[in-house]
């Protein structure tokens, strides 16, 4: 009763608003909001120096740099190759295209632990890929480079899947008009197609970046986890938990949560921009 009287903008003949909204809020609070607030409440009980000590010690800062830097790099690579893959899947015909299209989602469906041990095996010095990289002196498994590889893998579908629908909807007339006006194919891509794709491309980039920041399962196998060198921030949270340093673990978690929330906000704004561009 209370919800329908206070919140509804328009009366509806459909029933169940109170029940459905009530249950939604109850379930959401119980399982998500209250547990998440526990992290902030726990951190609020820390003194400021203790908090700073927990979130800004050299080992933690090194982990931020690694996590942030690799996530950013992986997201950039995914933006470039994701755009390419989306383009190829929408515009060209080739053998096995449908299978390739379906397999792009593999990183979403494959459990992270499986991805972790598989990538580690592939890039080990005796692995299918690692043995050739070893010849030119590049080591991936158990180095920061491994972190980047795992992050690239798990972020791969985001850009493809955000750009693909926009590219499919793109009106051919725009490109024809551009060609008629004398633009080369490259100019058309650069000046006509790319600006239309930009919001979706940025959304996919931000999603891949956000996913990589929090990723744990696939990375810990391949990273080697050396403090100051190849230790990601989520792993530090686990390490502190195992040492029963709950406050320290939670403080780092809060820093990560705040970063995720900022990213979530950015992604929502980007998506609103995409929809506006699409005129929907």
């Amino acid at each position: 009763m209370i919800f329908s009287r206070t919140l509804l903008r328009q009366r509806s003949v459909l029933p169940g608003f109170d029940l459905a909204l009530g249950f939604t809020i109850f379930y959401l609070s119980l399982l998500v909001l209250i547990p998440l607030s526990a992290a902030f409440i726990k951190t609020a009980s820390m003194t400021w120096p203790a908090f700073v000590e927990a979130v800004a010690s050299p080992r933690v800062v090194a982990s931020y740099k690694l996590t942030f830097g690799s996530s950013l790099l992986a997201a950039v690579i995914n933006a470039v190759f994701g755009l390419l893959v989306a383009w190829v899947l929408v515009r060209y015909e080739f053998f096995g295209k449908r299978i390739v299209d379906a397999l792009v989602d593999l990183p979403f469906a494959l459990p992270t632990a499986v991805a972790g041990i598989t990538l580690t095996g592939l890039y080990a010095t005796n692995g299918w890929i690692g043995q050739y990289l070893d010849l030119v002196g590049i080591k991936v498994s158990f180095t920061p480079l491994g972190v980047f590889i795992a992050m690239t893998f798990i972020g791969l579908p985001f850009v493809v899947r955000t750009v693909q629908p926009i590219l499919e909807d793109l009106a051919k007339e725009l490109e024809e008009a551009s060609a008629t006006l004398g633009a080369t194919r490259l100019q058309t891509f650069h000046r006509v197609i790319l600006p239309i794709l930009t919001p979706a491309l940025l959304t996919g980039f931000a999603l891949a970046f956000a996913r990589a920041l929090g990723e744990y399962g696939s990375i810990i196998f391949i990273a080697g986890n050396m403090p100051m060198v190849s230790e990601i921030t989520p792993l530090l949270i686990i390490t502190k938990l195992e040492q029963y340093d709950y406050a320290g673990a939670t403080a780092i978690a809060v820093v990560m949560l705040v970063m995720s929330f900022i990213l979530l906000l950015t992604i929502n704004l980007l998506q609103a921009w995409t929809r506006k561009r699409q005129g929907k």
């Binding site: 209250i34 998440l36 929090g214 989520p234 792993l235």
Partner: peptide
């Protein structure tokens, strides 16, 4: 979706 899996576990430990 935007919370790191590790943090998803941690919050239940806190509760």
């Amino acid at each position: 979706f935007s919370v790191s899996p590790v943090i998803s576990g941690l919050i239940y430990v806190l509760v």
